[in-house]
């Protein structure tokens, strides 16, 4: 088991393995998204209160979930990198940040587009769910700015890992904000007590979207880690040999 991880964490091995894995994540992911989007937009019935406006859930929930998932990759990568001095772990953190920022942006904007007709407002300052998600976006920006500010990769890895770990508090706040405090945002639908608060015809497309987005996220993350690894290892022998080999290694 340990050897398996050690081998996985070796940059050349991961670089080659990721190239093989990416289509296996992307193709099923895109198929699930195609089904989920079609069924969510056209097959699922309208909601008894919200009419068709609730269909925004099919992009809003996967984006919001991945905005937190990406952060956990970033923080976990930072922690593993700090404790075990594993180079690949820091590369995972650096690769996850721009993806996390993109999904956080999407969660905020699709939520705002949903809030306008339903709640009656694009944005409410002071709402704990909305505000903590916005802070999440600023944490991603801070992480990326910190990385680009430090030229020395090893130093940048350490400093940004510390920042990522401190910011985990906020992910916890995002998740529990609707339970701890009063909020305009409704509570958990999928994992609430007594099962999901959703009809099956609405629920299956949502699950397909969540799983599909996660797989595509995995593919996007794997590609960004490869780029990160290639850049970090640019002066190593394996990169030189790979590039000079007839097959190359793009």
């Amino acid at each position: 088991m340990w050897n398996f991880f050690k081998q996985l964490a070796s940059p050349p091995h991961f670089y080659r393995l990721a190239a093989t894995i990416i289509p296996w994540l992307a193709v099923p992911g895109l198929l699930l998204i195609a089904y989920g989007a079609y069924a969510g937009l056209f097959l699922a019935p309208e909601d008894y209160q919200q009419g068709d406006a609730y269909r925004i859930i099919y992009v809003h929930v996967p984006a919001a979930y991945l905005s937190m998932m990406a952060y956990m990759f970033m923080a976990l990568g930072g922690a593993i990198g700090l404790v075990w001095r594993m180079k690949l772990a820091h590369a995972v953190g650096a690769a996850a940040a721009p993806l996390g920022a993109a999904f956080t942006f999407l969660a905020l904007v699709t939520g705002s587009i949903w809030g306008r007709p339903m709640w009656g407002t694009w944005w409410e300052w002071g709402d704990p769910r909305l505000t903590s998600e916005l802070i999440l976006l600023f944490l991603y920006f801070g992480y990326m700015a910190l990385r680009s500010a430090i030229d020395d990769t090893a130093k940048a890895d350490k400093a940004s890992a510390v920042l990522a770990l401190v910011g985990v508090v906020n992910v916890v706040v995002v998740h529990f904000s609707v339970e701890w405090w009063s909020s305009l945002h409704q509570g958990q639908t999928l994992f609430k007590k007594g099962g999901p608060g959703m009809d099956a015809e609405m629920l299956y497309p949502l699950i397909a979207m969540i799983v599909g987005f996660t797989l595509v996220f995995g593919a996007l993350l794997a590609r960004r880690i490869r780029t990160e690894v290639l850049h970090r290892e640019r002066r190593t022998r394996w990169v030189r040999e790979m590039i000079l080999s007839p097959a190359g290694g793009r």
């Binding site: 009419g51 068709d52 406006a53 992009v59 999407l106 306008r116």
Partner: peptide, 18 residues
């Protein structure tokens, strides 16, 4: 979509575009 089309389609469009 009962006047909500603009909200729903822009959300989907933006997500896939990003």
């Amino acid at each position: 979509m009962g006047n909500y089309g603009v909200y729903v389609w822009s959300s989907f469009g933006l997500t896939f575009a990003v």
